[in-house]
Amino acid sequence: MSEAPTTLLFFGRVGDRLGRERVLTSLDAATVGELRRTLAAADPACAILLDPTVRASVDRQVAGDEAPVRPGQEIAFFPPFSGG
């Protein structure tokens, strides 16, 4: 039984670096912080996710590094809003 794919979204300068979207067929992390570290370990470009100013949301709710993540969720990473 395969797990539900997890969608990663990247915005602003993070999106410039990593592209808009990646889909993980296997989520090897239990929290947002773990996900940042797992991604950075697997892909040097993802080191940008370790930047403490890069924020995250889980299913469109702003989430700290301790927030739990589950397969099938939509997890976004982005710099602080620039405003319009």
């Binding site: 602003g12 999106g15 410039d16 710099p79 602080p80 809003f81 620039s82 405003g83 319009g84």
Partner: peptide, 23 residues
């Protein structure tokens, strides 16, 4: 409020390069 709190990320692109802008 819109100039600081709206969920946008803006980048200026020109002949001299690209730059992401913060409030």
């Amino acid at each position: 409020r819109l100039k600081t709190d709206a969920a946008f990320w803006k980048r200026e692109d020109g002949a001299t390069g690209s730059a992401w802008i913060e409030p």
